[in-house]
């Protein structure tokens, strides 16, 4: 239960930060994808099921606020959370390289899918321009932020785990 509440709070906080503080009053700025970091972290630390659920709810919020139809973001975040869960067996607490590689791949995949859904099918075919102007800068900013934020999530996860284990013993 504690875990569900913590995760719910984290999702909401990330969503709000992403839509307000980052890119503060700058309508066309590059925003690091905080919700993707959250999905990736918990997919990696806790496995497929939790990655899936976190991704689903992150996507739901994103869809409600930013998309004209419900569904696309939800699906993309969900799939990313699920696939990241496969790397759970390679997860070591001290490891920093694995999350970085995973988030870079995630960002590229995520943004390419968004490009295909909303731009390619809308007859904006110059992928190269979008790659250099949006996808790569966003990947860079998200990756840099991951280094800090991921450590925090590892800490949160450790605390939650300890609490839960303590309860089991009692």
């Amino acid at each position: 239960m504690r875990r569900v509440i913590t995760l719910g709070l984290l999702i909401i906080i990330n969503f709000i930060l992403q839509s307000t503080v980052f890119g503060f009053h700058n309508i066309s700025s590059i925003t690091p994808n905080l919700m993707l970091i959250l999905t990736m972290s918990f997919g990696l630390m806790r496995g497929r099921k939790e990655g899936l659920l976190v991704g689903f709810f992150c996507g739901f919020l994103a869809d409600c606020m930013f998309s004209t139809v419900l569904g696309p973001y939800m699906f993309v975040y969900m799939i990313i959370g699920y696939t990241n869960g496969f790397f759970h067996k390679n997860y070591i607490i001290e490891d920093v390289l694995l999350p970085l590689i995973v988030i870079i791949v995630d960002e590229l995949v995520f943004n390419t899918i968004i490009y295909i859904i909303f731009f390619f099918l809308n007859n904006h075919l110059n992928f190269g321009d979008y790659l250099t102007d949006i996808i790569l800068p966003e990947t860079l900013s998200t990756t840099l932020l991951t280094i800090i934020v991921y450590k925090f999530y590892v800490f949160v996860n450790k605390r939650l785990k300890r609490k839960a284990e303590g309860k089991d013993i009692i």
């Binding site: 969503f15 992403q18 839509s19 307000t20 890119g23 009053h25 700058n26 309508i27 066309s28 700025s29 590059i30 925003t31 994808n33 919700m35 994103a62 606020m65 930013f66 943004n111 968004i114 490009y115 909303f118 731009f119 949006i134 800068p137 966003e138």
Partner: peptide
């Protein structure tokens, strides 16, 4: 007043 913007870098929506 403007209070939020789209969370992704792709859209210019506020």
């Amino acid at each position: 007043n403007v209070f939020a913007k789209d969370s992704s870098s792709w859209f210019s929506v506020f």
